[in-house]
């Protein structure tokens, strides 16, 4: 996300003004906007998060440890994080190809395809879940074709993966698209005139420029998949230890009126997601510093 602010500041010109010099900024309003930002972030993000951790703190450390190491919790976390990583990785590759085709080639129907990408954003997740389940159930259009091959999709972890791919796709495409569009053709031509082969151009010129955007897209798709509930519960089968995602386990704990247990799992997911996103952010920074680019 920091890349956006960097873009803005480069717009204004010269290096970003250090905080101490803010009084001399050419644009007014720093105090007011920062105040609003803090207030709004507190109301919308920080206070609910604090409540989550406070509720978890009602439990003794032993109890938290017992909850988190229960096989069912571990399995649910494994399923949620494992499948989310897998789905985000698949989206990274296939989303990358899609975005390349959309940006670099002109063909009839391109704008329609482009618009289709946003559907997973717009569709209520429950609708997506029901639609996917209908298609992939053994009596559905696709499920009926796969059944003779012995492939079961709906009500298995494979079904969860498909739902997570579906909801994550636009994140990769929409993050990489503007960066790729802005990438100057001149650079590639310059590379060619300097004698670089086509692969070298892809590897040394294009890849370093779009890599940070790909990482952001991956991180967003992953974060969304970890928290996804609506579309998954329809297609998952929801068997404990097999196809029960962590968000469902949280809901089940709530329905047993065990709020603190639910928040313990939720807080764990949050911390784990945060750490993973932190790593991705670090990778981004690393790839940027290595190439010296502000993608």
């Amino acid at each position: 996300m920091s890349d956006i602010t960097l873009d803005r500041t480069t717009f204004v010109g010269s290096p970003p003004p250090p905080v101490a010099q803010r009084a001399r900024s050419v644009v007014p309003g720093f105090g007011l906007t920062l105040g609003l930002t803090l207030l709004w972030l507190s109301l919308v993000v920080l206070i609910p998060l604090a409540a989550l951790f406070l509720k978890t703190a009602e439990l003794s450390p032993d109890r938290i440890f017992a909850i988190l190491t229960a096989p069912r919790t571990l399995n649910a976390l494994k399923i949620s994080f494992g499948l989310s990583l897998a789905a985000a990785s698949i989206n990274l590759v296939l989303g990358g190809i899609i975005v390349w085709v959309l940006v670099r080639y002109d063909f009839p129907g391109r704008r329609v395809l482009d618009a289709l990408i946003d559907i997973p954003f717009a569709l209520p997740t429950a609708v997506a879940g029901i639609a996917l389940t209908t298609l992939y159930a053994e009596n559905g259009w696709i499920g009926a074709l796969l059944a003779p091959l012995g492939v079961k999709v709906a009500f298995t972890p494979l079904g969860i993966l498909i739902a997570l791919i579906f909801i994550g796709l636009p994140f990769v495409v929409r993050t990489v698209q503007p960066v790729l569009e802005d990438l100057d053709h001149d650079l590639e031509e310059a590379a060619a005139t300097l004698g670089a082969g086509r692969w070298t151009t892809v590897r040394r010129v294009i890849a370093p420029a779009v890599l940070p955007a790909f990482l952001t897209g991956f991180a967003l798709a992953f974060a969304r998949a970890v928290g996804e509930y609506g579309s998954v519960i329809f297609i998952a089968g929801n068997l404990p230890n097999v196809s029960e995602i962590a968000p469902l386990l949280i809901v089940i704990r709530l329905e047993e009126f065990r709020y603190a247990d639910a928040t313990a799992i939720a807080a764990t997911m949050l911390v784990a997601s945060f750490l993973l996103l932190f790593v991705v952010n670090g990778l981004q920074r690393w790839s940027r510093s290595r190439t010296g680019r502000l993608a």
């Binding site: 389940t133 209908t134 053994e138 559905g140 089968g237 929801n238 068997l239």
Partner: peptide, 19 residues
């Protein structure tokens, strides 16, 4: 094979999905 969260969900799984 499928553990739905509510009774209606199970009914749909059985009647609609043919599971």
């Amino acid at each position: 094979p499928v553990l739905d969260t509510g009774a209606r969900g199970s009914t749909v799984t059985f009647t609609e999905r043919g599971v």
